Simulated assay, not measured.
Amino acid sequence: FIGEHSYSTDEHPIAVGRPDDSDLALAAEFGKKIRKKIETADAMDTLYPVDVRAIKRPSQPFIPLFRFLRKVIKLRKSGTPLPRAPWVENESVCTHCGLCVVRCPAGAITKGDELHTDESKCIKCCACVKACTKKARVYDTPFATLLSDCFKKQKQPQTIL
């Protein structure tokens, strides 16, 4: 199901507000179908596995995808340095609450040293940025601009049962 992109910001929104009510209704219906499938199965062997490699990718409009890839190539060729991890832009704003530490799934931020992110562990998911109630943490990547500019059309969730 579709959710707000981790690089989404107020300045560069990417799927803001997702999942929306429609997405959540589809997710609830999907859950009901899964439950019914499990409850009506005679045995485990009737619950066949889904080969996710065989799932057809959702169609992607060619022009926005081409525009995005062209801009990515241009960005890479420009030599523009890309940020390696989120950072605390204004240290006086950070309250050292530790929420970024708790939310980081990679353990890239240490309690007591919230101002730093271990770049070798960071997976750039931006969970720390989204969790920071003071907006002290940022991840200003040019990819946010590219994604926001090139992919404005809302995608529909895809489910396989």
Rank of each mutant, 00 (worst) to 15 (best):
K121V: 03
S148M: 12
L82P: 14
T9K: 07
P61I: 05
K124N: 06
T46N: 04
H116K: 07
V102F: 02
L161K: 09
K152I: 14
P58W: 00
S8C: 13
H5Y: 13
R67G: 01
E4C: 14
F68G: 08
E11C: 02
P49L: 01
K134L: 08
V138T: 13
I109L: 00
I123D: 01
R67C: 09
Q154I: 15
E119R: 06
D51W: 02
A131W: 03
D113W: 00
I160F: 11
A85N: 11
A106S: 06
D113P: 04
Q156S: 14
E39F: 09
C126T: 07
P61R: 07
K77H: 06
A106D: 04
Y139H: 14
Q156I: 12
G17Q: 12
K37H: 12
G112S: 05
C128K: 03
Q60W: 00
P86G: 12
S148T: 13
Y48L: 15
T95Q: 09
S120R: 03
R35M: 15
R57K: 14
A131D: 05
L82E: 10
C125I: 04
C94R: 03
T141W: 05
T46Q: 03
K155A: 15
I160Y: 12
K124T: 06
L24G: 06
L26I: 06
S78M: 10
T9V: 11
L24R: 12
H12A: 13
E89F: 10
E119L: 03
S148G: 13
K135R: 11
A108C: 04
C126A: 04
K56W: 01
V88M: 08
S6D: 11
T46Y: 01
A15S: 10
P81W: 01
C128N: 02
S78F: 05
I73C: 08
H96I: 04
I55A: 06
E39N: 10
E91W: 02
R84E: 14
T117W: 00
I38D: 05
E114T: 08
D42M: 05
K111H: 01
I160E: 09
V72P: 09
C97K: 03
V88P: 14
E119G: 05
T46D: 04
G112R: 02
D21Y: 00
H5Q: 12
S8F: 09
L65R: 07
D45F: 09
E29I: 04
T40N: 12
L26Y: 03
T110S: 06
C150Y: 07
L82F: 08
A41L: 05
T117E: 00
H12T: 15
P61C: 08
R70K: 14
A106F: 02
G17E: 12
F66Q: 12
E4K: 14
T159L: 14
K111P: 06
